[in-house]
Amino acid sequence: MNHADHASGSSGASIFWVALRAGIVFLLVCGIVYPLVTTGISQAIMPHTANGSLVKDASGHVVGSALIGQNFADPKYFQGRVSSISYQAEASGSNNYAPSNPELLKRTQASIDAWKAANPDVPVDRVPIGLLTNSASGLDPQISPASAEVQVPRISKLTGIPAGRLRALIEDHTEGRDLGVFGEPRVNVLKLNLALQEMLGK
């Protein structure tokens, strides 16, 4: 195994030995050292985001992640988008219905009927399409400001909080486009509901 003399590759066998050693070296460098070093630095200087941007309620209990949507079953809370996995964040996913798939129309029609039953004061043609369709991840934490706005009459009726105060709450929780241009304006549903809960508690 005198491969050192031929290391520049003068025979197939010597190339194989270099390839084998290269494979092991880069398995260690790229597969072990690199992720562990980035983990170490991130945990040391950015522990909040590195550990999932967790959100606490007023009493200090962790109630979720600011980045991961949740299911809100109680109609007095603001609701997020349709999720085919009911916001189970151990495994992300969506229906992946094709635009021509009849199941897509059936599911959306069911969402529309549910909307009409829960929100008799707001006609469907005012409801943004985003609120009645499935997100890509099934975990979309946000809705558009208009999607929050159309829920105000229902929540106001159920909680007794005046519509004006709810609208102000939405405005406070609206994030603009990143750097003023990128992406879309949006409202984080979990943070909005936490604020709503606080308002109800008082």
Partner: peptide
């Protein structure tokens, strides 16, 4: 189906990206 579709085709897309 009659929703406000001005956002475009949002099925399978995320709110923040539009």
């Amino acid at each position: 189906l009659g929703m406000d579709a001005s956002q475009g085709s949002m099925e399978g897309k995320e709110t923040r990206f539009g």
